[in-house]
Structures are given as C-alpha cells and as structure tokens.
Amino acid sequence: MSTGLWLAVIASALGTLLIRVVPFLWMQRRLGSETGLNSIPQWISILGPLMIAAVLGVSLVPVNPGVISWVATAIGLFVTLLVWLRVRTMGLPVAAGVAVFGLVLIGVALAG
C-alpha cells in the first residue's frame, strides 16, 4: 500500500475509534457530574432499542435471497420466537432457530 493509502486507513481507524469513545466518555462524565446533568437524555435511551431493531431488520435479508431462503428465514424466526417465549434466554432459541433454518435449506437442497 502507498503512504497515502496507509494514511487513509489510519484516519478512518482513528475517526471510527473517536466516534465510539468520545460519546461514551462524555456520558460517563455527565453521569458522574454534580451539576444535575446526571441522567441519560430520553432520546438517547429510546434510540438504543431502536438501533438493535434496525440491526435485526438489516440482518433479516438472507445471503442469497430467494423464495426458499425467505421461507426458511420466516420459519427460523418463528421457531426462535417460540423457544424464546418458553425459556426467555438467548442461547437455546438461537441454536434452535439456526438448526431449523439450516434443516429447511439442506432439506430443500437434498430434495432438489
């Protein structure tokens, strides 16, 4: 890589790190201050769960979108939710969802 490209990598890395660190440290300082600014602004606490929901929405698109992979996604999510409703933990529902999703894809591949 050329020097210019290395500088671009370092600038992107440093900028990304600052984007992650500075707001965190700002909030920790704000929470610990004695000036009364010791609570998280409501809009930030609302954006947290919404960001997770957005990451879910983005990750829903299968690697190779098609009727079969969409159906497998729907079945996998349904099973994940069903198991979650029973156990209310993360590990087992995820394992069950991935297993069913995989079984549907492999089953269709074998049948085809």
Binding site: P49, I52, A53, V55, L56, S59, L60, P62, V63, N64, S69, A72, T73, G76, L77, T80, L81, W84, L85, T89, M90, P93, V94, G97, V98, F101, G102, L105, I106
Partner: peptide, 17 residues
Amino acid sequence: GEIMPFALPALFLTMVA
C-alpha cells in the same frame, strides 16, 4: 455460508422481543 449468518437475526430477535 448461508446457514451461519442466520445466527444474527435469531440473536437480535431474542434481544428485541
């Protein structure tokens, strides 16, 4: 490569629910 990525939506679903 198609099956493994499904762990992500499954995991995020258990976080959103």
